[in-house]
């Protein structure tokens, strides 16, 4: 049922979600999701709470198995792969509720991610320094991660996933709980990563922010992709306005 809103052709799709269905105890959360993620683009996924966005992420990253449908990554069917194998292929995600290793130090948190990627590039030490400087955690390298604030934890997670040199980055509400000054920097950083060829998919509630950052936006409601198109088209759609901007 997805409506194509004047997008360019999908010749260079890196990730293809084909008719993915998922139900929990009789409740259909995803009712047949079809979505092509273009290589090197930033795709935003929006939709009301409970629409199935995070479940979709869980399925793409292997944490849950779809009842039906396929996930094709770089031309290969990865629907049945376990999360760690997908991670090694370069599919890396963040979680809505930050997940870091609380009993390890900040440095160790990055170290864990340093060498498990097949597409590791450059010196991991330098990369770690750069990333820690970027997220303003350089002064806390030897502190236990459990002592970090929520925002800092979130930034550490962000640094972690970048440490991994992903091919496709799935960000689940990356900006929630981060101070506004840093959000701009993170957005710039994401654009820079994009210019280096990284594909990014992000779930976000803040529509203007998504519109500013993304190349295309997919709207998920009731377990299907309602629309998928260029940001200006989506933002100006009457139904989207009603759902997302009506209350604000």
């Amino acid at each position: 049922m997805a409506q194509d809103c004047g997008l360019v052709t999908m010749a260079s799709s890196i990730l293809s979600i084909q008719n993915v269905k998922k139900s929990f105890g009789g409740l259909d959360v995803l009712k047949g999701i079809n979505l092509e993620i273009e290589e090197g683009k930033i795709t935003g996924i929006i939709g009301p709470n409970g629409a199935g966005k995070s479940t979709l992420f869980d399925i793409i990253s292997g944490y849950q198995k779809a009842n039906e449908g396929k996930i094709i990554f770089e031309g290969k069917d990865v629907s049945k792969l376990m999360p760690h194998l997908l991670a090694r292929q370069g599919v890396i995600r963040t979680f809505q509720l930050t997940r870091i290793f609380r009993n390890l130090t900040v440095a160790e948190n990055l170290l864990v991610f340093a060498s498990n990627s097949k597409n590791q590039k450059g010196n991991s030490n330098e990369r770690a320094i750069e990333l820690l400087e970027f997220v303003h955690l350089s002064g806390l390298v030897n502190d236990e991660a459990s002592t970090l604030s929520y925002g800092q934890s979130k930034l550490l997670e962000f640094a972690q996933v970048l440490m991994h040199s992903p091919k496709i980055l799935l960000l689940d509400e990356p900006f929630a709980g981060i101070n506004p000054g840093l959000i701009d920097q993170m957005m710039q950083h994401l654009r820079k990563l994009q210019s280096e060829g990284l594909t990014i998919v992000l779930i976000e509630h803040n529509l203007p922010m998504v519109a500013k950052l993304c190349d295309s936006i997919a709207v998920v409601t009731n377990g299907v992709i309602e629309m998928h198109g260029a940001p200006d088209v989506i933002v100006n759609d009457s139904r989207v306005k009603e759902v997302f901007l009506g209350g604000h």
Partner: peptide, 18 residues
């Protein structure tokens, strides 16, 4: 390191390719 990561958070460890 992989063991420590698994101890702290299995889900995050898997995300790290462990």
């Amino acid at each position: 390191f992989e063991m420590l990561a698994v101890r702290d958070d299995e889900i995050a460890a898997a995300r790290g390719g462990i």
